[in-house]
Amino acid sequence: MTTNSGSEKKSAVNVREMIAEKKRKRNFSALTEKIIPILLLIIASISILTTVGIIYTLLSEAFEFFKRIPIWEFISGTVLKPLSQEPEFGLLPLLNGTIISSVIAMLVAGPIGIMSAVYLSEYASEKVRKTLKPLLEILAGIPTIVYGFFAFTFVTPVIRAVFPAVEATNILSPGLVMGVMIIPMIASLSEDAMTSVPNSMREGALALGATKLETTFKVVIPAALSGIISSFVLGISRAIGETMIVTIASGSSKNFTFDITQSMQTMTAYIVEVSGGEAPAGSTIYYSLYAVALTLFVFTLIMNLLARYVSRKFREEY
């Protein structure tokens, strides 16, 4: 033991005294301790300010718009002619484009996403899963502008080679590509929901002689249903808000049509077109941006709240 040599040296440096000395001098640190939480609260409230900013700008400018165009006329109008001599501002063409492109996207992403989730969570070995999942996630990391390029310069020409009636800009191609973009989101969220189904539930079914497939459809998917639904809702929200793919590949036709071989405009694409086109501040067309954006915001907000509500219910189940 060498403790004694330590205590001999003690006379040289008296730590206790040094600390006491420093403490007497430092009111500064007490002040820091008081200021830091306030500073952090201010920083944290920036996220609230962002929300307030979004809601305030959208509401106040949209309010200006509705002073000029009655809200009912906007919501129920089937004609959108913002630049004509006698402009009309009907939302339905845009709503229609948004809904149709989202439906196409979900028809791709829904089945493929959930089948991928089933494969990854129920069939794939750990090794296969560990390779496929990150690869799939690359899809989610590709910027949407790249998908837009792909839809416009590859998918559309391929579709047109098979079906010449399809127009050069159409809603089908961006809808499909958007679907591919959303696959990883649905696959990974649904897979999370499925893997969190306790193994005991699977074993119960398997022990009765059910095949893996039957177990998946009769036990796993029902148990994970709210997680799966929530992933779908988030996917829809993502599709509604997606901008670049449809802007590039679907053109800017404002026709109110259900023909997916034609060009249609979504709410997002309208915002890009109008804001990029030097809409003079104060004009009705300028304010229409905010009315459309407000609609978009409300739609996605409802979807996100719905997704959270559904998945929270799901967590209570086990």
């Binding site: 979004i54 700008t57 988030l234 997606e242 901008t243 915002i271 804001s275 915001f297 996605t300 907000l301």
Partner: peptide, 11 residues
């Protein structure tokens, strides 16, 4: 996190 990026553009 769920607000579409285009809305941030308008903000």
């Amino acid at each position: 996190a769920g607000v579409p990026s285009i809305v941030y553009g308008l903000l």
